[in-house]
Amino acid sequence: MNLTPFAVVGVPLATGPGILLLAILAASLVLIWDWRWALPGAVIVALGLSSVQAVLHGAAPLVTPSQWLAMIVAGVLLGLAGRFNPAAARLHTSSNWLTRLIALLFVLGAWWVIDPGVSLPLFTQVETDLVLWTGLCGLLLVSLSAAPLHTGIGLLLLMTPLQAIAAILMPGAGLTVVAGIAQILIGLGCAYLTLAQQLPQGTQRLVAPLPTLTTQTPPAPSVARGLFRQRRQALARQTSGAPMPGAAGEGGREAHTPLEKNA
């Protein structure tokens, strides 16, 4: 069987351990939460799923590359937004890791207890479970987040089932391209919101000024030829607020740091 380079990546993933690895990676995005882990992780999960389908279903040659392209472009857009405005990703942390773990376990438990028996046509049950699990992890990311960056990552993960279904159930309809455009537009919209996010005053980085060393130029020795001229110079200094000669210390060095002031 001739495999495209995109499908070759999927060969090790289209096995039991490979699918389990993708599922664990999807769950880790919810647990670890940091966008620097979540974004590449979401992209890897989506690309992995796409490659798995290329192996198992023999998708048309252009389908997998277009899926990869859309996901990578959307991921890069979100990544750039996170890179340029990293504080925005930390602003709206809705929960801690324990809450997210409980939420994840609750979803797992509910799925196991209710067992809705969902099966997608043409998909094997393991594939169906992986697709649904990826979508659920995306939904959890969206639900637990109020930040555009994390919501964008969650929505990209939520688009993965749509991409999978469009490629396998409706081959030849060109829906992969339409879904890819939608994915890029979502990435672009969330990246825009991430960049447009205004930081509250408290979270802006405060930069303390460096202590400056100013050397006071000693006043030129004026030749006071008379009493009136000396008085006029003294009055002019007082009204302009300029320091009197010798006020900044003997060396002309001003005290800036608390240590210097105490000294």
Binding site: I165, A166, L169, M170, L193
Partner: peptide, 25 residues
């Protein structure tokens, strides 16, 4: 804020796969 604009994306994203599977049937 941006909660409304982000949440508005959710219904069509959730509905689209259902339409495609329904279309297959």
């Amino acid at each position: 804020g941006f909660t409304g604009s982000l949440r508005a994306l959710l219904p069509p994203v959730l509905a689209a796969p259902l339409f495609l599977v329904g279309g297959w049937w």
